[in-house]
Amino acid sequence: MRVELNAISKTYDGSTFAVRDVDLTIPSGSILGLIGPNGAGKSTALRMVATVMEPTGGTIAYDGQVATDAASHQALRSQIGFLGDGNPLYKDMTATEYLTFFGQCFGLRGPSLRTKVDEVLATFSLGNKANARCKALSKGMRQRLLVARCLLHDPSLLILDEPADGLDPRGRSDLRTIVGQIRDRGVTVIISSHILRELDDLCDQVAILQQGTIVVSGEVDSIIERYEVSRLVYELRILGGLEQAREILSRRRVLIESEAEADGLTALSLQVQGDDAAVADMLAELCGAGVRVVTCSRVRSRLEDVYNRLSEDQVN
């Protein structure tokens, strides 16, 4: 489903705008990451796209059609899976009962409903908790259940507001895999987060929202190029050969942001100009010159650099 937001605005108090004049086009089958600090207007924008909140101004077109009345919104909701911000659960229901309830709300019945419930439980590794009450689930499991609920009716537009909230690293990794798989099925995904690393490798497009307005939007690569963020930030930990390392890094025009001692190792924070190949070459040279490299890991994504350049807000 292709989604177009045209000058969408929302105000709650008549004077300040939660969302103001937002224009966005999300191609069918792509993943849009909506980035912004808490209170930037992400949840409001997503609610409007999910048709559960009326914009104060502007229109939203779904596959070129603008939904104007309640009936068209209703028809649209059959194609939208929406996980809102801070979505609560019915605590006394089991995971299966919860999914069955929402499956029925989406018009699923009988064996197809049971099959679908089993399928999403398995997808989100909740099979062994199928009969556990929601209040007995861990926060991560609850979050997985909430996301699972949005996929019951095979939506063509999936809207996830802070879906990784409460998920452990493994859960986040699984979520990324699942969202990728959903995109591969042709589903358009809009995902919001204030944790940029979650979205870095996942999104086709990003939009950065600050104080209700879009400050930048487009394809990830083009944004990075536009803001000249062609560097990668790494942490290099070495056991010995610091002088040789400094000399090589200087020659390769690698900027050393900081130097620190930790656990008997020297940790260097490096800004590397270029792509991953440049980093591989640098590491090969360091090792060849006798520098005793213990680890080398990326510590900051390019999106974070873009974001930091655009804003003074420190995000994660």
């Binding site: 559960v52 309640a70 929406f82 609560p88 659960l89 019915y90 929402f102 989406f106 009716h153």
Partner: peptide
């Protein structure tokens, strides 16, 4: 009170 109506409003039900 628990805001559980919001997800239901996002479904096919009017």
């Amino acid at each position: 009170h628990e805001n559980t109506l919001q997800p239901v409003l996002g479904t096919r039900l009017r």
